[in-house]
Design a protein around this nucleic acid. Structure first.
Lengths: 132, 132, 132, 132
DNA sequence: GTGGTCTAGACCACG
DNA sequence: GTGGTCTAGACCACC
């Protein structure tokens, strides 16, 4: 598994990690019972401090997304997928609604906003695959 | 002028103030040369710390949106409107693109996302007026 | 507020802190809205590392027992008391049941166990006050 | 002999094994001179790592509860029963005292605690037999 | 002043 | 080998 970390984008590194793990579970890349990368391994591969990874995993534990198997590592909880999928959906929906509301509130025209969205969608669907 | 401050939404209060000032200028509610509320007045009416308002005004000065008129207060710069309008637009566009890219990257279907957007837009255009 | 920390009793320091905070809320020593000691202050008074306190407060945040007021500190959440009281009760009840079940399972006589309990209770109620 | 292992209850597996061995000796299920299950056999039957069993037996050796008979296995030491019985009793008493002291210290009423205990005892003595 | 984040490195328990 | 805990100290954002 690959992790893309941007230490300067305002979003804490540990959140970036936690989010990517949850997305991977939502997509099915990581399945229930499967071990997630070890703290040290992930830290090394992403060139960050093990404690930062630990913090991400701690949060994921509190959300019951992963659990520790003593001496063996940390694994995806059963039932985590369902939670991750709905989490992702509701979170994205909320953010989209906030953004749209703010834009309208700020006086932007519906039509202009619609055009923006279509452009963004087109760019994401065509360019996204190349990136991954 | 009325300010809506939410101290718990993660976004710094001073940014909320600065953004609302800029939006007001973009919409024409505040025009070039007009005085913005004094630090103390705004702090009192929004029940926040004067230092926080000061910080917002400092940022707005650095962006040449407002300027100090010695002894009279702070006023909207000439040419601020054009900058605020394009700022608003490009900022919203960037955020929309980020959100769409992330959603697609996370495995959400185009169609599902489109539906989300339409819902959000409808809700914002119908319900928005009531709220404000 | 005073904290009793025993770094060698197997129970992590951050749990000892979190538990004492929750007990204080359950008892009414700390009430909703009230600020808990600052990270640095508690760390200094208990002679431990600020990060350890931070970890305790992080857990308490996740349990919605306290919340951060940006720039001001961390305060007891409204509704925390009810949760802390019932938490304390159910936790103690579970531990007591586990202990009793294990003792009976291990072949200890009911009468012997009862005597143990009465002794413990007497010692705790008479000696407890002196200790504190 | 049957072993009940719960890998997720916080108590190390090797301690669970050692405790169950000692309880069996205290009850008379295992008597002086009798061979305890071999490391491999116990590991297989309980579906755990042989190293974990080894660790438990190592601890029991250090406490002079079992001893190795070269070429034959490990057997219960003579005099182990007396030690196991008093161990069990003092250990349970200590834990009970700790629990009671903590409950009282946390502000729980004596009466409430007494009721809890009686409930736990009743549940353990009525339900316990069925379980075993 | 407050908490939030991150790094560096130590030691321990567990399997 | 794994994760868990703790310490030490840095830098930042916020009020």
């Amino acid at each position: 598994m690959q992790f893309k970390i941007d230490p300067d984008n305002g979003c804490p590194i540990y959140e970036q990690i936690a989010r990517q793990i949850k997305y991977a579970i939502a997509e099915g890349t990581l399945t229930a019972g499967q071990l997630v990368p070890s703290v040290r391994e992930l830290a090394k591969s992403a060139a960050i401090n093990p404690n930062t990874v630990q913090r991400a995993y701690l949060d994921l534990q509190n959300e019951e997304v992963i659990e520790t198997l003593r001496g063996r590592g940390m694994a995806v909880c059963i039932g985590a997928k369902k939670r991750c999928v709905s989490d992702r959906q509701s979170q994205l929906r909320d953010r989209l609604e906030d953004l749209v509301r703010e834009a309208i509130h700020a006086g932007l025209e519906s039509e202009q906003l619609k055009k923006m969205f279509d452009n963004a969608l087109q760019r994401a669907t065509s360019g996204g695959k190349a990136k991954l």
